[in-house]
Amino acid sequence: MIDAAELGRVFRVRRQVVHAVRDLSFHVAPGEFVACLGPNGAGKSTTIKMLTGILAPTSGRIRVDGLDPARRRTALARRIGVVFGQRTTLWWDLPLRDSLELNRLLYKVDRKVFRDRLDELCVLLDLGAFLTTPVRQLSLGQRMRGDIAAALLHDPAVLVLDEPTIGLDVVSKAEVRDFLRRRNAEHGTTVLLTTHDLGDVERLCRRVLLIDHGSLAFDGTLDDLRALVPGRTSIEEVVTDLYLSSRGSPRTPPLPPVPGGTSGTA
């Protein structure tokens, strides 16, 4: 479904050459649920942008559902759904329902098919209560659910999410995660997401891609990732160690627990 081979992207910043992504190769099969991890600035977003056709790679080859994203961007857009956690794809001043209807027209989805899909999404994402509310008045959790609905109305084969749980409270996070897992299981939608929330990874993904300094540092299951750092059992500690070693700084000793806090049970 997704094929990247020796993918690279170079930026020129004030005559300096920055390799945002270099020599990145991976393959995602249809129906997989993959998380893309990596420190800030590692090249996750650049990779997502090359997958969706927003950025053209400067080297290597990429295919998503058989298409070259940068050259066939609009054709690919019909086959993939994209969610940006940090910005909305909805129209700020329009009620959510109007935004979704506008998406229906832009994606040329048949009216009846659209109604059935919207009914299903309304139930699963619990959109009913705020369908007629202008998007600017939605809470972040509501907006994110609306954004996910908008990305799925054309029933894409691949769903790409860039930090979909950023800023969400625990309940909203759980709702988004449950929905994504169901979608993947019941519709066979291939899901690729980037995140900094390791809870997302533990609850959702069978497979983890770790991107560091623009290239692939790890590709495997969560258990394999744990086994990478002996002596650490929690995924959070494992990833912290990996990020720190990539930065080249030693691990600082843990701070004493907060007085009166319930450290150790979290």
Partner: peptide, 14 residues
């Protein structure tokens, strides 16, 4: 600057 162009680029229209 606002990143909204990214959103436009992933829609299947001009």
């Amino acid at each position: 600057k606002a990143g909204t162009l990214d959103v436009m680029l992933v829609r299947p229209v001009a």
